[in-house]
């Protein structure tokens, strides 16, 4: 029984793509009846409401860092609504941070499993992640390169298509200062 609700059979969200085999029009009635209210509300929320419910925020303790210093940052995601909200993500990777658009400051492509994931938020839940960037970019499987002084953008996005447009992305900039003589 449970599996039916775990599938996307009850989702009503026109913005997320389904392959035809996943869009089952004949939703089992039996299943509809025993579904619990929480799961139902989560599944039937229109996309715009879910997007409005969730905020993403990236913050840094200060805006400028000396060259070579660790840059700590905090990603906060909050559900403003008094009901649970869930997103279907593009892969089991639910969200990711990035520097200048490079996921986890790496230029080595990651190859996540080709299957969706689900990112859940409880009612009013606030998730907070403390991360750090070492002012390095990973340039190959085994090598990292230090950055030069300048402005860098640290962003975080929920792993859905069009996260920026949907407001499921935030960014902040930091200055990396040249070494003083």
């Amino acid at each position: 029984m449970r599996r039916i609700y775990e599938s996307e059979a009850l989702t009503r969200d026109d913005e997320e793509q389904f392959t035809p085999s996943q869009r089952r029009s004949e939703t089992p009635l039996q299943a509809m009846r025993s579904v619990n209210a929480t799961a139902l509300s989560r599944r039937l929320l229109p996309g715009w409401l879910r997007r409005r419910a969730i905020s993403v925020d990236v913050s840094v303790p200060c805006e400028a860092f000396p060259l070579g210093a660790t840059v700590p940052f905090r990603v906060t995601m909050a559900n403003a609504m008094p009901f649970p909200v869930a997103f279907r993500t593009r892969s089991p990777i639910l969200w990711a941070w990035e520097v200048d658009g490079k996921t986890e400051a790496t230029r080595v492509p990651r190859d996540p499993p080709n299957e969706p994931g689900e990112f859940r938020f409880g009612r009013g839940e606030r998730k907070r992640f403390e991360k750090r960037w070492e002012q390095l970019f990973r340039v190959s499987e085994s090598e990292w390169e230090p950055v030069v002084p300048g402005e860098y953008t640290i962003g975080a996005r929920i792993n859905v298509d069009g996260a920026v447009k949907k407001g499921l992305y935030d960014e902040t900039t930091v200055q990396i200062l040249p070494e003083r003589e």
Binding site: E134, L136, E141, S142, E143, W144, E145, P146
Partner: peptide
């Protein structure tokens, strides 16, 4: 320093 920038195999 190199240990922070290169992964040994």
């Amino acid at each position: 320093e190199v240990c922070t920038r290169k992964q040994p195999s």
